[in-house]
Design a protein around this nucleic acid. Structure first.
Lengths: 259, 259
DNA sequence: GCTTGACCCTCACGCGACGTGAGGCCCTAC
DNA sequence: GTAGGGCCTCACGTCGCGTGAGGGTCAAGC
């Protein structure tokens, strides 16, 4: 039943080296080894590999995949939403590129003598003056604009981390309240709950108070969430549920379910 | 008129380091430097950058882009067709992934308690037995199959090079005939012309004899092609045109134009 | 004239996901 | 017993930059 590296590699259409790499990272360690030290993969290993490849296709870095698969309470929902967003953006971009290539090919096949400059007119995506105007419209020609222009490049790469940190900070702040014995229905707790709700809306999806309350319910109902939230501080999931609910009440939420 | 690195970087929405990198590679060297050694980019440099970014978006490696832009007779048409193919495949894959993510999200929002295995059923793309059957159907469980399975992984990465080499070899063979004084209408020349036509059909696009003849015409009509083809051997472009035409005649082509 | 701070330069190492040998053990088969 | 294929573990290479370190340049304000 146990498969060797080359067999697994052929099945999954990846390289042997990739399997070695996943082993090194602790991402997918074969569940057995032969006497001679050969890697032996079980059916369960294959299933895990399947999951690894899924997330890889979605564009997750391997280190994240390791954590995702190792940590069953990872926030799949928000991660998938972000990834969906990313994928659709990439798809739109690809569509645009295919279009640009078609235009270029058309021109080539008709005129034969199309010079490259003309080709790029079709792909009119880099007119400096246009960019500058757009940029000024957005931020004005201020110091803030200069600063912003400089930082946006970094943002792209660090989005994930920043967003995660922002969320973690909110949870931590709520955990601190819990530790201090503050009530989940206190103004400070509700304010943080509201901040968390807005945080979700800002980065992931519109989350009306009723849905937020539902999310809190899920935190205690679903042990996968509960366990991990309580790692920050025991009892935090309950505290979150209550503060989310209190805040939802304050915001005048009806008794709508989450979803 | 001359722009500094940071200005260009802001306009093109790339990093300064990237510009340094392109300079190092000889891909985009600023046409001027200040007394202090500052890079100064002209409008022409910006246009070239525009082209660089276009090809980069299409997924070409930088080294290839350098050669493409440095060599005006590069076979844009075939390159673009290949790239188009690649892009549509990638787009299709992205679509499938978005779908898979949607399914996963749906399940998550309904059931909340969806385990990962169920999630991957939606993305049923890794059933080992399925793969194995498919593979056997295609190649049978032979030595050739084993070999093939081992090589396909490499093919992906080396496609470009192999295909280019195949084309180069054909051109070289024809150049040898020319050097030997063989007629462009000789059987051997026509056979090579036919091989080139089939080569195009195999890797790029269906090229009926009449279109192939038109391609030959272009080789002499468009100096960008002429110059570079004649680098292989002076007069080769003419020889190609004539042998393509002779072969088209032999294949019973009407007098249709290329395209 | 001097400092401050934004901007520029050139090394040069780091990263992520492997590719690609090198050198050597294992295992079956002739 | 030796030839071959498959497996192992280092360990360095690749690509497209990111990210400092260490230091010169330049316009503005004191």
């Amino acid at each position: 039943m146990a498969l060797t590296v080359s067999q697994v590699a052929r099945l999954a259409k990846i390289s042997i080296r990739a399997l070695h790499h996943y082993d090194e990272l602790g991402l997918l360690c074969p569940s057995d080894r032969s006497e001679a030290g050969y890697r032996l993969y079980s059916q369960a290993d294959l299933q895990k590999l399947q999951q690894v490849l899924f997330f890889k296709e979605l564009g997750f870095p391997l280190e994240d995949i390791r954590r995702i698969l190792g940590d069953p309470t990872f926030d799949l929902r928000t991660a998938l939403r972000m990834q969906r967003q990313l994928l659709t953006e990439r798809a739109a971009r690809l569509d645009a590129l295919v279009h640009a290539v078609d235009t270029a090919l058309d021109a080539l096949e008709k005129g034969t003598h199309v010079d490259k400059e003309a080709m790029f007119e079709a792909f009119g995506d880099f007119d400096p003056s246009k960019y500058e105007e757009e940029a000024k419209q957005r931020w004005g020609d201020t110091e803030a604009y200069k600063e912003s222009a400089r930082r946006t490049a970094r943002y792209k790469k660090e989005d994930w981390k920043r967003i995660k940190e922002e969320g973690d900070a909110l949870f931590q702040a709520l955990a601190d309240l819990l530790a201090a014995g503050t009530s989940a229905a206190s103004a400070s707790a509700m304010d943080l709950a509201e901040a968390h709700r807005q945080y979700l809306g800002k980065w992931f999806y519109a989350c009306p108070p009723a849905m937020h309350r539902g999310l809190g319910e899920m935190y205690v109902a679903d042990t996968r969430f509960t366990e991990n939230i309580d790692k920050v501080r025991p009892g935090l999931s309950l505290f979150l549920r209550d503060s989310f609910a209190a805040n939802a009440e304050r915001q005048g939420a009806a008794d709508a379910p989450c979803g």
